[in-house]
Design a protein around this nucleic acid. Sequence first.
DNA 1: CTAGGGTTAG
Length: 591
Amino acid sequence: MRKLIDSSIQRFRRGFAAKSEASRDFDGEKRQFLRTPTIDFSSIKSARDAVSLFRKMLAMSPQPSVPAYNKLLSCTVNIEEYRVAFYMFDKMRLRGVEVNLCSMSIAINCCCLLNRVDFGFAILGSLFKLGYKPNLTIFSTLLKGLFLVGKICEAETLFRKILTLRLCEPNDVMILTVMKGLCKNGRTQTARDLLEVMEKASFKPNVKAYSAVVDGLSKNGMVDDAMFLVSEMIGKGVSPNVITYNSIIQGLCNLGRWNEVKYLLLVDMVDHRVPLDLITFNTLVDVLCKKGKLDEAEDVLEHMVRIDIDPNIFTYTSLIGGYCLQGKIDKAKEAFDSIAKRGLRHNILSYTNMINGYCKNANVDEAWRLFDEIPRIGLNHTTVSYNIMIDGLFSDDRVADGWKLFKDMEASRIHPDLHTFNILMEGLCRNLQITEAIPVLRMMKEKGVNPDIVTHNIIIKGLCKIGRLDAARNLLDQLPSQGFQPNVQTYTTIIGSLYQEGLDEEAKSLLVEMEKKGCPPNNVTYNAIIWSFIKRNELYNAMPIFEEMYKRGFSAFPGTASMLLNKLRGEDKDDNFLETFKKVMPQLKNE
DNA sequence: CTAGGGTTAG
């Protein structure tokens, strides 16, 4: 079949012949078409059905009409058998069956959907030779085809030509095709320019066209431009709808600009009488869950139920993730259970979120129970589900079980990824088996998974843990030559260990080095240093670090703070220290 | 009896 199609394609390169003798004969039989028996196209379910019907049609006398053949082609396209449709189109031409503009349009679409827009243009050439002129539909299809293979500039040029040479009047479909194509390929600015051009040429883009661009801008972090575009579209008399707003909300949420969502956008939507929908609410619930504001998420949930918008599986999945993040495992389980209770179908995410929650909250057995349940309820394990479970087992020091699961994963042909290997290495290092980590490193390379900076940070941490600070330091120095850029975590790990070992001078010089490399210490770094001093019972050394940390706008972790507090209470109180701590740490105000 | 697409998330 493939060969046949390829030879068809070769013929297109050579172009069509003029109308064949045979098709002229059919023209004379027009009246007979009316008597053509009706053909049942609804029975086409597979490529086989399509081809067998095609053969039957070819054998019919009188011949079925061109539209009848076109219907066959379009049914074949509908079942996504583009190669087959294209093959039949070619066969029609060879057998002398007349093809019209519509047939060629379908054939061009097949080429485009097969990522061969070039063949589409070859058909366009034949179309001209047959004395036809391409129309709006054909141009739209070709534009889509160009975007599909990433020929963005060509698409833009063609569209501009259509506008300036008035090759056809662009309609909503064409405009949307172009806007989506440009935005999906990161050309939001071009899209915006073209919107302007079209407005001037009085081809009015509709809400969908504008929304596509608003979405493109939002996705690229240009929410302010997106909001400006919304005000522009309103000025042009195009009202934004819930989809337009949802894109803006997502853009704002991605940038953490939650207050604008809450106090501007939602209010604006109510003012413009644009009702919020399931997607709006799910976005809100999701962002609130990720921020740990579960009570607000619950309010949103309650509100959507009140206005008769049913939460779906994704609403609950967000909630599970949020509750687990807060360690509220019971509430997470409640959300998990309400999925089935409400007659919703679980998805893999609801399970992985819940499993992750159990693992991170010291209930690996329950996690494993759910893990085993996944295939039984007809869901498929993923790399992520395995990764989470393996990580859980290793964190619980069940190294043997972790390994067993990894072997299991490979046996089930679920491919381990970078995360998997990093989890394995971390698990081994945590259990002081760093020598085992080296074969894992080799294994991942063999499987074509390249280690990243995280992998190396894990190894460095492992080396520090067994006291091989020299080796860790060596590895750090080697990283750049291996193409890895050390990050804050890399430095923090070593610096923390150096301080714990009392190698203060070396640690200090490393602090200077990281700063110089454009990788300044962050709150984790400072907390790690403070921890080391607490362990060494040298609070006077922790003091300047503490001040430096706050000067840079970072704060102590709750754990660090309470540990400091304990120390301060336990020892002979030095009021000086306490006063300084109080100044920077609001949580100590009442002490 | 015929063609192009339908804007937002997990």
